[in-house]
Write a protein that binds this DNA or RNA. Structure first.
Lengths: 325, 325
DNA sequence: TTGTAAGCGTTATCAG
DNA sequence: CTGATAACGCTTACAA
């Protein structure tokens, strides 16, 4: 059996209180007592029970992170950044990969809301989850609209969409296709599409978009992207909704004998560090992952301290000049 | 204040015991009581306190995952796979990205060992952490040697190293350089290097390796990889320790005007799904990520049930035939 | 400087 | 079928 406070107390011939005081370095204690207690803890290899402490303190020092998938580099880097910073603040993180499955998200939520976490950072993309309302748990959303009470951190999607589209047009593309997430969601990322459509229209070009569900397999995705080239053999520009898709499309373009950038221009989205290093050629819109993480934590901390926050924080994007556009 | 069991009990005019019974669907209860209680819970928007349950049950239903970094696709996919499967078993996961920093790992460990988690899956690469001994917490290691008591899941590193090296040789490379992790660690991954060296020697070739610390920046990494081409302008083959590095090296090769595969053959390692889809051209040794995750959980479950396990489980690797070698 | 006792929010035993 | 009550392991008034 794991030793508990009481065992230490008995071995050291003091009370539980005293041991607790030593443990938490609180109150006045004689050096002698302190030594005795440490000795006993050592002997028993004592480790305080975190759960008991959590119960008393009503604080778990755990933050929940709910994201679609950690295997997409954008989320991977974001989660890593968040974890790193939370760790240095003394928090641990529980991660839920919702895979954008509403059931799973709802489930996670219910569990996490039950005093399991001190706060929540949510970056999944589902609608109609009302649970987020009924708690006064500090929550921050990343790139996701939830409700009035929950602040959203996002990068400037409209500007990103505009920059991408203008870049493609300026480099001579006329038939530009945009891949997006599912049409049905109301997320800040939709502003990319708005920007794309407005920019296209402004230049007298016809916007065309293909929406791709998250959480489908690579095989299915490849199927959809193939279809683009079948439906539009004359496509000469693609604005992909993320870098992984951009690269997938590049692979498929090859099969259709399209050379990049001669026959087809491509712009991606996200610009995670790992992508920019592995494939610097890909022209892409860079979301400031580190700044997003910083801002999310800054706002979460405000909420944890019950302070006021804005309801939206928009961070600037930049463009990475590769050779695909 | 959050409502508690007692509040529900009062509102429903029953005892805490009864509410608890309803909550856990245990024992005999009249339908009337059940309805009353559910009503009260509804009205108060009651949610049971997980921490209190954890304390009583001495079980948190949390598994700790300690990995170097979730932003490398190999670990990203592995962690995702583990999370997905643990979730379906009713576990949540606390993730620690150790960045291979021994301090951080030790710290995480200490915290997690304190009754915070029911089990641990460790895939970081540090030495000399003795803490793992003194607990009877179920632990499983992935690709990491810890101590006799802790079962290790790994893919067949020797075979992987041999296949990679032989492939390079067979395709005509003579001056083949191998990049590895730090020399100082005793990990199963070292068997790749052994295999590389033995295979090279067997073919009368001179093994040369460059060791690259984890947790250095991309800039530093690039520096080291640059050095390879400066030190060995006649290099015609590279066996990289992972796919990310393989791609980094490909970028650098370009700068040195080496065409792939004409002037330089490259074989990577890991073969995560995302990599194989984004860069199908990269010839690489594929670790069976899903099987590793499955086996790790199978073994962890055995440990959780206090059953015997083997001390080592080795899973087969395969080769992905790209065009870089 | 140290100890006693109550309480954090559950669950299970045992009695009715 | 239902209710007191103790217990899970720790922290903190309050007392001494």
């Amino acid at each position: 059996m794991k030793p508990k406070l009481d065992d230490v107390a008995k071995l050291a011939n003091v009370s539980k209180t005293t041991v607790s005081r030593v443990l938490n370095k609180r109150g006045y204690l004689s050096q002698e007592t302190i030594d005795k207690v440490y000795d006993a803890m050592e002997k028993l290899n004592y480790q305080p029970n975190t759960v008991a402490r959590q119960l008393y303190n009503k604080k778990t020092n755990i933050i929940g992170l709910l994201f679609p998938t950690v295997s997409n580099p954008f989320f991977g880097e974001l989660v890593e950044e968040l974890e790193k910073k939370l760790y240095s603040q003394g928090y641990k993180v529980i991660i839920g990969n919702s895979m954008n499955d509403p059931e799973k998200e709802k489930n996670y939520l219910n569990q996490l809301l039950s005093n399991q976490v001190d706060g929540l950072i949510v970056g999944t993309h589902n609608q109609n989850i009302q649970q987020y309302q009924n708690e006064n748990l500090p929550i921050v959303a990343i790139d996701r609209i939830m409700n009035q009470d929950i602040p959203v951190i996002e990068s400037d999607n409209y500007s990103g969409g505009k920059q991408a589209t203008e870049r493609l047009i300026q480099k001579g593309a006329k038939k530009i296709i945009h891949t997006t997430g599912p049409d049905t969601l109301d997320t800040p990322a939709n502003r990319r599409r708005e920007a794309y459509e407005e920019t296209m229209t402004y230049h007298g070009l016809q916007p065309i978009h293909y929406s791709v569900d998250f959480n489908i397999s690579y095989t299915e995705k490849t199927g959809i992207f193939n279809q683009i080239f079948i439906d539009h053999p004359d496509v000469d520009g693609v604005f992909a909704s993320n870098d992984v898709d951009a690269l997938l499309i590049m692979q498929i373009a090859k099969k259709f004998n399209k050379n990049i950038p001669e026959d087809l221009l491509i712009v991606g989205y996200d610009g995670s560090k790992i992508m920019r290093n592995m494939f610097p050629n890909l022209t892409t819109i860079v979301q400031p992952i580190e700044e997003i993480a910083n801002k999310a934590l800054e706002v979460l901390n405000l909420r944890l301290e019950k302070q006021e926050t804005l309801s939206e924080y928009i961070l600037p994007v930049s463009i990475w000049n590769g050779s695909t556009c």
